[in-house]
Design a protein around this nucleic acid. Structure first.
Lengths: 345, 345
DNA sequence: CCACATTTCTAAAACGTTTTCGATAATTTT
DNA sequence: AAAATTATCGAAAACGTTTTAGAAATGTGG
């Protein structure tokens, strides 16, 4: 490594012929420094390529201009799901525009699993959580959002009344997806759900049930499978389910990845999609439009979700007003080919 | 925000009845502290829920246990390309296993565009660059890798002899892709290249030329287009190129995204792929296998690349030995349908 | 029991900032 | 011109660690 000369605030104070405190004030826009000397100091600083040391500054101000992101769990690091990459991109854009960088928590050598501890240790100003499954204890989760600005994206497990979160309009969107299937003439519809703990997952089942009820169809728990948001798991469950006859003609999946697994399985069993079985997914990830058949699915506005979460977090950091914020992002059904056309008789 | 009591090293020194320095040494595994007192201190620290302040520590040690990642450029934040999300995932896994977190540089409010400056400001221990196009000046790039452990992934623009990088076996893989087209009977093959500055992009053209030469085919610069790795741009160029006859029966693209744009354009022009025109891509992103027609493409081992880069960087950080490291990751041609079958006479 | 080596501990400096408070200089008021 | 006010600056403390240099305690050999 070639050596690099790093100048500190003392060096530029010396060069400018003023005190360290005056330099600091000039740099941070304090009012008690003459505009002429401020300009002079700024010039010297620029000439000498001065960079404030973020550690020293953070030590005093307790701010790092960094927001943290927790992704998924240990085994499945979250980036597996293409859903996440657009989320993080929008977070990056919003936070970046406001002068923040992004820290992704990765270190697995910590001697703690406390979110609060980890956040404090790294000195992030706030944190966004994008969790899947049931990877946190209640104590852990409460501790975090009680001590630090926190926003959950589509992943609150139990609803505290003081948790900030962004979610998709899950119930409504699922309702419409299932209603569409019903209008196409389906009466026995399988629900491939995610899990039973996440609010998002629960709500997608809820919308399914509401649509059935509204149209006088029976809700049958045998028609609800739990694919854990895994393509592989959905494949297995589908293969087992459809290997015996049951009169089911349509499937509503809680994610596109699972929908792919479902369709793969149906094809392997000799069914045609959508002629024999109609399938609707959830997410509208990039692959879905190019899939064969192109997937009918619920479009989640990932960019808007990330954007909203980031803005929400920056607000929380700025104001510290203790107000709890929620946002529900609209979703719409994108009708492609996998849901098929109206059934004859 | 509920208040959280944060204890510092002084508090636990008082509670343990020893000096601050002894606590520090006990915590950091120094040898000059009796094992009995060390144990006692560790217990007190755990009981009091002590967390070291990373700012204060970093101020002295100049380490942050964080590696930085620069992604793409300002406009196109990098996550657009699905190629990147797998890269970052593997980096996260490797770095995380070794006790590092990941900082993604996002802040656009900085008053500098110097990589070195930005890295120093955040105190990262090393940095991985995944750049596209020509978004850095030579001065900027040199300054960075001279002052900080740095690994480039498939994105060195000019070859310094002291730059660490990981790249795909671009020349070789491209050679085989084009040779495959030649063996299928194609003689006029269009090259949709990326740009002319990145080494990766250059090498993919080089492999194309080598294959032509080996089989006695003429290299014609009119058959090399520059799609800048953009699906849209590739679409435009393809549409213009194929609107006049030229006897071209195959296209070799430097990315899958561009290949999609190419195929879209060909379809719009009324060509059939692969019957009329064969197309081969590069990257093997997830969409490619589900695309219609499934894309023949060069599979880049993204996971291996990210993994290798991360390991390389951690080595550089650890050893500081000044040794320059390179890694070339094998790639293989994945033959699907878009390249078609052997041409009849 | 003394001289010396070794083990174990501590005081204090250092890291590079920000911020408080008081000092000085400049300006205004009386 | 003196007094009061205001604008501008600087000294020093503080942030929470690590590390150096040395002091105290303990052990060892004669």
């Amino acid at each position: 490594m070639g050596c690099v000369i790093i100048v500190n605030i003392r060096d530029i104070a010396k060069a400018a012929g003023v005190s360290v405190s005056t330099v600091s004030k000039a740099l941070n826009g304090y009012s008690d420094v003459k505009s002429k000397t401020r300009e002079m100091i700024l010039n010297v600083a620029k000439d000498m390529d001065y960079l404030p040391n973020v550690m020293a500054r953070g030590l005093i101000t307790k701010k790092s201009n960094t927001i943290g992101i927790f992704f998924g769990d240990r085994q499945n690091s979250g980036f597996d799901n293409p859903f996440f990459s657009e989320l993080i991109r929008s977070i990056k854009d919003v936070a970046g525009a406001e002068g923040y960088d992004i820290l992704i928590f990765a270190n697995q050598k910590r001697n703690t699993s406390s979110y609060k501890t980890i956040c404090y240790e790294k000195g992030v100003d706030g944190v966004i959580l994008i969790l899947t499954g049931d990877q946190r204890t209640d104590e852990n989760i409460r501790e975090l959002h009680e001590s630090l600005p926190t926003v959950y994206i589509d992943s609150v497990s139990y609803q505290y009344n003081n948790v900030n979160f962004v979610e998709t309009e899950n119930v409504n969107a699922s309702f419409h997806a299932v209603e569409h299937l019903i209008q196409l003439g389906h009466t026995r519809i399988l629900k491939m759900a995610g899990d039973q703990v996440a609010k998002a997952s629960y709500d997608r089942i809820e919308g399914y049930k509401q649509a059935l009820s509204k149209h006088g169809l029976e809700v049958n728990n045998d028609l609800i499978l739990y694919g854990e948001f895994s393509r592989e798991k959905a494949y297995q469950l589908t293969k087992r389910f459809f290997s015996k006859p049951g009169g089911v003609t349509a499937v509503f999946s809680s994610s596109d990845m699972m929908a792919f697994g479902i369709i793969d399985a149906l094809k392997d069993l000799g069914f045609k999609v959508p002629e024999d079985i109609a399938v609707i997914g959830f997410d509208d990830i990039d692959e879905s439009k190019d899939y064969q058949p192109p997937l009918t699915t619920v479009h989640q506005q990932r960019f808007t979700m990330g954007e909203t979460a980031a803005k929400m977090l920056l607000q929380l950091i700025d104001s510290q007003d203790g107000i709890t914020r929620h946002a529900t992002i609209p979703a719409r059904l994108v009708i492609r080919e996998s849901s098929g056309t109206k059934r004859g008789g």
